[in-house]
Design a protein around this nucleic acid. Structure first.
Length: 838
RNA sequence: GGGCGGUUAGCUCAGCGGUAGAGCACCGGCCUUACACGCCGGCUGUCACAGGUUCGAAUCCUGUAUCGCCCACCA
């Protein structure tokens, strides 16, 4: 029997029969709802996806067999920058939100050299078109892998309903005062020209240099500071030192002047200044880093910003308000050499200027330091003042920590990552992005008679109108002609952070504010499976939104998968070039085999990519086919289970059912598989080998073997079905009616044979112990199984009864023609000698 | 710098107070009417290190080393 063609057959059949269809009429207490991670379709699937999605699927299949109506949808995350970039290149377009929607627009067959400007709705249409193609590929892989998803529940994060949910949830927060817009310094990527959130940051170690620079004191002396960003000297608004620092206490309250620009700035005291960093005095600029923002706010300092949204130094007319200098011409002359430059170029230039004017003490000292980057960005983040939308998080931190404790984590220790993150939050969540492909903010503003936008005069649509796009839709009471006109309106140009939509996946899936019946049955959901690297983003933001919107957890449990590591124990990633394409793997080893490997990686455990384990999985699948063929291929009718070996085997299987069920209930699929596998191999190598000859007859003992082996097989098949759905279905289908994946999860009760007891289990143990020794002897004497032997046994007296129970099976199962047994008092006694039977 | 996890046979990993385990790899044997895509057997370890608790520690505690991850760190 072979595995060829078997998976293909069942993929088609499952779809045709709707085996995995969610029963929407199931009462809530029978539902098991899974908040599946929507993969980013503009990326490519890698073996890590196969790994973690298999884990979820095992749980889904287990719960389904336990009688739960499993709500197991798939989502596609098509929002965000990766898609934008692909669409720009693929179609040769660029988004210009100021353009009107052109329903007739079609992209050129091949992208031209000059990007065609298109409206935001047109751009979004192209994004949807391209991602739809990606989704087909993804769905094919998931089906190939055998995920038991209900494909009728698929959603996309840019889809109409996801937009509606995102906008509706946003408006609700706005109304509740939990979302707000403010003009404030925010982290900014100068290449993407958008604000970014704390969750999207990463630190990178980059080379830099400490520059020592003197500021002039009124008494003619100097005060020296150290900085890695000398280009921000024109943006300096104060110096700061620790209040307890005796070196600088005399200077607090005095004014010093900046080098090159001769700007008077105060020397101030603040506890965040660290005496042992640099010279103990820091230059406060608007804005060099987050600490600058804190100082600026807490010390009520003015703003003197030099870096623009595109990263270039802005033009400044010195002497104007805010740009006072004691030597305006000198300041202007120096600054003019910086205007228009990027931060890096301005830094090089200002070092020259400092050196020329004698204001650089020593040479810049090269260092390596950590700098904040947008995770997808190439240049360090700047802090730029702009108008952005925020969702309150700082004032609910304690509540979120409580939610984190309420949530059941698998494994438990992953909760620490959540708490770590919540405790480290330093500001509310900035959710607006100055990008195009995403969910727009459903907000317009009034335009004043002078043509300027009044950002405080917000216009929001009725909830019933959602989703809307303010760049094409018109607020109630206005006409399209009034867009941008004096007395008219203007749409909010921004889109939401991709996590602002992803954080609502439980709402999207469960029909929040769309299908109250479905919502009541599925929300809060039961399980959030995901990898540990997005605890700070996806898991955190989902808990936050559910807390704010429904005052509850979004789900009861979360199961955190580890990563797949390459043989060097590094995370598999595209950039390292060590990625294995999942489709190739599945084709080579078979989905059941790859799933086997994946399922062996326990919750939270990073697991090495190992084709060897897939081969083992494949072997298990083949073994399953062959063992089934033996068990089901006999012609012996079933009868009462009377033999000790049969009963002992069933006792083992019974214990396995209890343990495997418990493990799966606790989301420890790896432990369940391990135990099941062990018992299954013992079933094949020990049990079947012992009884196969007994079963050849038609008498009571033969019928007992036929019956017991069928019960054992039935239970083992079902225990393995969540892991190896294809091969188990193949066997089941030729034997039972209906899909194994809809069959009832085995119960201990099924394995009960009348009259079975512990004695049967120890008797089986005895039979196996003796058999193992006989086999060793055969191996040592190079005697094939075909050669009949006679046995000489020395057994513990305590095992006399065991021996009597299993004697016939041991002899038949080992091709032994005769035996001579002596019993001794030693409880450990067990010696076996064999000789060729004459 | 803070947090979390790992360190067990050549490799991948179980075990998490009571005589060191599995699979793979390796070596040897076996055609045994379910399976040669198989079966049987064998070899392999100061359980990272040092202290402590205990009758007993791979397992609990403390510390060290080391690897990885998360977070913080632009003077």
């Amino acid at each position: 029997m072979s595995l060829e063609g078997l998976e293909e057959k069942w993929r088609a059949r499952w779809e045709a029969d709707g085996v995995y269809r969610f029963d929407r009429r199931a009462p809530r207490d029978r539902v098991f709802a899974i908040d599946t991670p929507p993969p980013t379709v503009s990326g490519s699937l890698h073996v890590g996806h196969v790994f973690s999605y298999t884990h979820t699927d095992v749980i889904a299949r287990f719960q389904r067999m336990r009688g739960r109506a499993v709500c197991y949808p798939m989502g596609w995350d098509d929002n965000g920058l990766p898609t934008e970039r692909r669409v720009q290149n693929y179609y040769g377009v660029r988004c210009d939100p100021s353009l009107p929607y052109d329903p007739a627009f079609t992209p050129p067959a091949t992208p031209g050299t000059q990007a065609i400007p298109v409206s935001r709705p047109n751009f979004v249409e192209l994004c949807a078109r391209l991602t739809a193609e990606d989704e087909v590929v993804f769905e094919h892989l998931w089906r190939y892998l055998g995920l038991s998803v209900d494909w009728s529940m698929t959603y996309a994060t840019i889809g109409r309903d996801a937009q509606r949910v995102s906008q509706l949830a946003f408006l609700r927060l706005l109304r509740a005062g939990r979302a707000y817009q403010v003009e404030a310094p925010t982290l900014w990527d100068v290449d993407f020209r958008t604000a970014v959130a704390q969750a999207e940051l990463e630190d990178r170690e980059v080379p830099g240099a400490d520059h020592r620079v003197p500021f002039a004191r009124p008494d003619g002396g100097t005060i020296e500071i150290e900085t890695t960003r000398p280009e921000l000297i024109p943006a300096c608004v104060a110096l700061v030192a620790h209040p307890d620092d005796p070196r600088y206490q005399p200077l607090f309250g005095t004014t010093v002047t900046t080098p090159l620009f001769n700007v008077p700035v105060p020397v101030m005291a603040h506890p965040l200044a660290e005496p042992d960093k640099g010279t103990g005095v820091a230059m406060i600029c608007t804005f060099g880093d987050i600490t600058d923002v804190t100082w600026w706010r807490e010390l009520s300092l003015p703003v003197r910003a030099v870096i623009q949204a595109n990263g270039a130094f802005r033009p400044v007319t010195w002497g104007e308000p805010g740009w006072e200098s004691l030597d305006v011409p000198r300041a202007q002359a120096h600054y003019d050499q910086l205007a228009g430059l990027s931060a890096v170029k301005a830094r090089a230039r200002i070092v020259d200027l400092l050196r020329e004017s004698g204001a650089l003490i020593g040479d810049p000292r090269p260092i390596s330091h950590h700098v904040k980057f947008f995770e997808k960005g190439d240049r360090p983040l700047e802090i730029i003042t702009s108008r952005q939308w925020f969702i309150q998080t700082m004032n609910v931190r304690e509540a979120l920590l409580a939610r984190g404790r309420e949530l059941q984590w698998h494994p438990e220790y992953m909760r620490a990552r959540f708490e770590n993150w919540v405790n480290g939050l330093n500001g509310d969540w900035c959710v607006s992005r100055q990008r195009f492909f995403g969910v727009p903010f459903p907000v317009w503003y009034r335009v004043r008679e002078d043509g300027t936008t009044d950002v405080d005069a917000r216009l929001v649509p009725d909830e019933a109108r959602l989703p809307i796009d303010p760049s094409t839709d018109v607020p109630d009471g206005f006409t399209a002609a009034q867009r941008g006109a004096p007395g008219g309106f203007a749409g909010d140009p921004d889109v939401m952070d991709t996590w602002a939509t992803s954080s609502l996946t439980p709402f999207i899936v469960s029909g929040w504010e769309r299908d109250p019946d479905l919502f009541a049955r599925t929300y809060p959901m039961h399980l959030r499976p995901q990898a540990h690297d997005i605890i700070r983003t996806w898991l955190f933001s989902t808990v936050l939104r559910a807390h704010l919107e429904t005052d509850s957890l979004p789900w009861a449990d979360t199961a955190i998968s580890g990563w797949v590591l390459d043989p060097d124990r590094k995370k598999m990633s595209k950039s390292k070039g060590n990625v294995v394409t999942p489709m190739g793997l599945l084709e080579e080893h078979g989905s059941d085999a790859v799933r086997y490997w994946a399922a062996k990686g326990g919750p939270g455990v990073d697991t090495a990519f190992e084709p060897g384990q897939m081969k083992v999985g494949r072997r298990l699948a083949i073994k399953l086919l062959n063992a089934s063929r033996f068990v089901l291929g006999g012609t012996t009718p079933v009868g009462p289970i009377t033999e000790s070996v049969d009963r002992g085997m069933l006792r083992q299987v019974r214990a396995l059912v209890v343990k495997a069920t418990r493990h799966l209930d606790e989301y420890d699929y790896a432990a369940a598989l391990r135990e099941t596998e062990t018992v299954f191999w013992s079933f094949c190598d020990h049990y079947i080998e012992l009884v196969k000859r007994r079963r050849m007859g038609d008498d009571g003992p033969a019928r007992s073997a036929a019956a017991a082996s069928q019960v054992g097989l039935s239970v083992l098949l079902r225990l393995l079905a969540p892991f190896m759905p294809f091969v188990t279905e193949e066997v089941w289908s030729g034997w039972q009616t209906g899909s194994i994946h809809r069959a009832a999860w085995p119960t201990p009760h099924e394995c009960d044979a009348p009259g079975a007891s512990d004695a049967d289990e120890t008797a089986l143990r005895c039979a196996i112990d003796i058999t193992v020794r006989i086999r060793a002897q055969r191996s040592e004497l190079k005697l094939g199984f075909g050669v009949p032997v006679s046995l000489t046994l020395e057994l513990a007296e305590a095992r006399r009864a065991d021996w009597e129970r299993v004697k016939a099976d041991v002899l038949a199962g080992n091709n032994a023609a005769g035996q001579r047994v002596t019993f001794v008092a030693d409880d450990d006694a067990l010696t076996v000698a064999i000789a060729t039977a004459s």
